[in-house]
């Protein structure tokens, strides 16, 4: 659902369209050149998976979600980063330390507690609620050395590009260097006619 250009703090990189299933836990393996926005240095690798509403629709239909629930999902914008901690003994994923913004305007995240009410309205089963929960990025994770994590972070649909600033504390006691990665000019993808 997000589209367009990523810029890390250390530079910009080209983009290709992305399409694959979202891991909750990315596998360690030789890494092909990523499609979509990405950033890498000696400490972290981050990429952002982009899916169109059509792809999201197909994914959740394939998991037998009802259409009312899928429509709730399609009414939002999914940003799906995959993060690999390459160097720190602990790298802290804390979504409260991430900011979505456009210029000076902050874009609030849609948090986990938004969804239960929507699932009540749409009559989504407990199994499907559980599946959906596992596709979301954890709120907090002490990412260990060589550990990866992936999942969706949700914001309201945006009609203009936005910036995602990710701040990570490091070290078991969070006293290590603060790592900041900025992805600029992200967009919510819409299906092309």
């Amino acid at each position: 659902m997000i589209k367009q250009l990523m810029t890390g703090t250390l530079g910009s990189l080209p983009i290709l369209a992305a399409l694959f299933l979202t891991p909750c836990h990315a596998q360690q393996a030789p890494r092909p050149v990523p499609s979509g926005p990405w950033y890498e240095d000696d400490a972290v690798f981050i990429r952002i998976v982009q899916r169109t509403p059509e792809q999201l629709n197909a994914f959740y239909q394939g998991r037998e979600f009802n259409q009312a629930a899928i429509d709730q999902i399609l009414g939002t914008c999914f940003v799906t980063p995959i993060i690999h901690n390459k160097r720190f003994d602990v790298l802290w994923l804390e979504l409260d330390n991430w900011q979505f913004s456009r210029g000076a305007q902050q874009i609030p995240r849609i948090e986990r507690d938004y969804w239960p009410g929507k699932w009540e309205q749409s009559g989504l089963s407990q199994a499907h609620r559980s599946t959906f929960g596992w596709t979301l990025m954890p709120e907090v994770r002490d990412l260990r050395l060589d550990e990866s994590v992936g999942g969706s972070v949700v914001i309201p649909l945006q009609s203009h590009p936005f910036t995602l600033t990710m701040n990570f504390h490091s070290g078991a006691d969070k006293q290590g260097p603060l790592k900041t990665i900025v992805f600029k000019d992200l967009e919510c993808i819409i299906d092309k006619p």
Binding site: H25, Q126, S130, G133, G150, G151
Partner: peptide
């Protein structure tokens, strides 16, 4: 784990675990 409740109890850090 048809409704996912056992998985929730075990609290894996993600799937797979």
């Amino acid at each position: 784990d048809a409704d996912g409740s056992v998985t929730e109890q075990w609290q894996p850090r993600g799937l797979p675990s």
